[in-house]
Computed example of a mutant assay.
Amino acid sequence: MALNLTDIVEEARLSARALWDYGDSFFNPTVRLGVTGLSRAGKTVFITALIHGLTRGGRFPVFEAYASGRIARARLEPQPDDAVPRFDYENHVRTLVEERRWPNSTTDISELRLVIDYQRQNGADRTLTLDIVDYPGEWLLDLPLLSKSFEQWSTESLALSREPLRAELAAPWHQHLKTLDAEGREDEQAALKAAKLFTDYLRACRDERFAMSLLPPGRFLMPGGLAGSPALTFAPLEVPTGGTAPDGSLWAMMRRRYEAYKDVVVRPFFRDHFARLDRQIVLVDALAAFNAGPEALHDLEAALAGILDCFRIGRSTILSALFRPRIDRILFAATKADHLHHQSHDRLEAILRRTVAKAADRAEFAGAAIDVVALAAVRATR
Rank of each mutant, 00 (worst) to 15 (best):
199 T>Q: 05
380 A>T: 12
16 A>C: 04
373 V>N: 00
206 R>K: 11
362 R>C: 14
157 S>I: 06
260 A>D: 11
73 R>G: 00
374 A>K: 11
268 P>Y: 06
265 V>A: 06
165 L>W: 01
62 V>Y: 07
168 E>I: 15
158 L>D: 05
120 R>H: 11
4 N>W: 13
47 I>K: 03
77 E>K: 01
346 D>W: 12
77 E>F: 02
237 L>Q: 04
66 Y>H: 15
96 L>V: 09
103 P>K: 11
179 T>P: 05
80 P>M: 02
119 Q>D: 04
364 E>R: 13
249 S>E: 03
34 G>E: 03
218 G>P: 06
57 G>W: 01
159 A>M: 04
51 I>K: 13
197 L>Y: 04
82 D>V: 06
142 D>K: 06
258 Y>K: 02
72 A>L: 14
93 V>P: 15
245 A>E: 04
279 R>W: 03
346 D>E: 14
364 E>K: 10
82 D>K: 14
354 R>K: 14
69 G>K: 06
309 D>I: 00
246 P>I: 05
85 P>D: 05
131 D>S: 12
302 A>T: 10
85 P>S: 03
146 L>C: 05
177 L>R: 09
108 D>G: 15
379 R>C: 11
200 D>Y: 06
219 R>P: 06
174 H>W: 03
80 P>L: 05
58 G>E: 11
226 L>C: 00
280 Q>G: 00
278 D>M: 01
135 Y>C: 02
311 F>Q: 05
114 L>F: 07
184 G>Q: 10
195 A>Y: 03
115 V>L: 06
49 A>N: 12
184 G>R: 12
171 A>I: 02
61 P>C: 08
347 R>L: 10
326 R>Y: 04
22 Y>T: 14
357 A>S: 07
41 A>E: 01
243 G>Y: 05
208 E>C: 06
66 Y>D: 10
233 T>D: 04
169 L>W: 04
134 D>C: 09
61 P>M: 08
271 R>A: 12
250 L>V: 05
14 L>R: 15
40 R>I: 01
172 P>I: 09
129 T>G: 03
270 F>E: 14
222 M>C: 07
234 F>T: 00
99 E>G: 01
354 R>W: 08
217 P>N: 13
58 G>C: 07
245 A>G: 01
311 F>D: 03
378 V>N: 13
50 L>Q: 01
194 A>E: 02
5 L>A: 07
44 T>I: 10
372 V>G: 09
250 L>Y: 12
281 I>E: 01
179 T>H: 11
112 L>C: 04
204 A>K: 08
142 D>W: 10
310 C>N: 07
311 F>L: 10
366 A>V: 08
298 H>A: 15
131 D>V: 15
342 H>P: 10
187 D>Y: 03
312 R>M: 10
149 S>I: 08
2 A>P: 03
245 A>P: 02
29 P>G: 08
79 Q>T: 05
117 D>V: 11
81 D>I: 05
16 A>Y: 10
19 L>I: 06
167 A>Y: 10
22 Y>W: 12
151 E>C: 07
330 I>F: 09
99 E>Y: 08
96 L>D: 00
